[in-house]
Design a protein around this nucleic acid. Structure first.
Lengths: 152, 152
DNA sequence: CCTTGACCTGGAGCGCGCTCCAGGTTTTAC
DNA sequence: GTAAAACCTGGAGCGCGCTCCAGGTCAAGG
């Protein structure tokens, strides 16, 4: 979608392709994942084998990063590694799996809605308990010194 | 739930058979926890030592159950066992720890609010992805048969 | 009484999601 | 060219939160 004009300050050496690439350290910093986790995800099949230099070092491309960030959304919404593996496998299998992937996402989305609702219910229980403790503290103060100086 | 200290109809003697008690199996069923988990929680200090029969079998009282259910709210909102241990220890230590317990709950509540917000943000990302896949499916159908019969 | 099933204890084991290590190779900075 | 930093692989290890097991004791029905 663009030209191949050598007008940019290219990073040296191994980057002969048009697209800029990132080392594992750079991806780690950007995603918040550790080097080990990135390698683990690749070994586990969550991400397809990342491109390498001639010296076998990983060079991530923009698409890898985008996929990683989506994986992180799945992870943060509580999807297990096993399910992410399934999803990734479908993705690797190509367009014929779009319906399956959609089904997975819809189900996950529904579970997420349930979990958010449950958390909100539990939050109100916490709020009640907090109110209760606040009242206890007030009562204590009253009993000790009904209307005197206090240090917050 | 407020102001309830001196008016309890205490069974002053150690004869508490008046109060109904529950076996571990009954508590397991009511809470959804397994027998093993209940024993584990007790061993870990999340709940104080439960009363026993002369034959050393646990008999839970209403207060035990209420505390367990509150623990479950903490657990479901993501509090670690270690933090629940801290909270339980404060509770065991008595009223002087009310301020500390309040502080813990407030912090936990704030983290919970953060997590709910994050989940909602992620939910919208999922929604976009779902929309995207739906569009892909539509496009596929169009390309195959631009306006013809389809079997659902 | 006896049987059966619920319960007890201490401790080992497990599944998950990483995290660390050893020992080696590659890249970078000077 | 050389030293240091970054990276590689396979595999072991870890922390969490249970879960299971062995080997018993206890309780309720017939």
């Amino acid at each position: 979608m663009s030209s191949g004009q050598p007008l940019k300050p290219l990073p040296r050496d191994q980057d002969r392709d048009r697209e800029p690439t990132l080392t594992i350290a750079q991806v780690a910093e950007r995603t918040g994942l550790s080097h080990d986790t990135l390698r683990y995800y690749e070994k586990a099949g969550l991400i397809e084998r990342v491109g390498r230099t001639t010296g076998n070092q990983r060079r991530y491309q923009a698409a890898d990063l985008a996929w990683l960030e989506f994986l992180l959304r799945l992870r943060e919404t509580g999807m297990s590694i096993a399910d992410m593996q399934r999803f990734a496998a479908l993705r690797t299998a190509g367009n014929i799996t779009v319906a399956d992937r959609l089904a997975m996402l819809r189900e996950h989305r529904a579970e997420l809605a349930d979990r958010i609702r449950a958390l909100r219910r539990n939050a109100t229980v916490l709020d009640h308990k907090i109110d209760h403790y606040e009242q206890l503290l007030l009562d204590e103060v009253e009993h000790e010194q009904p209307g005197s100086d206090e240090t917050t």
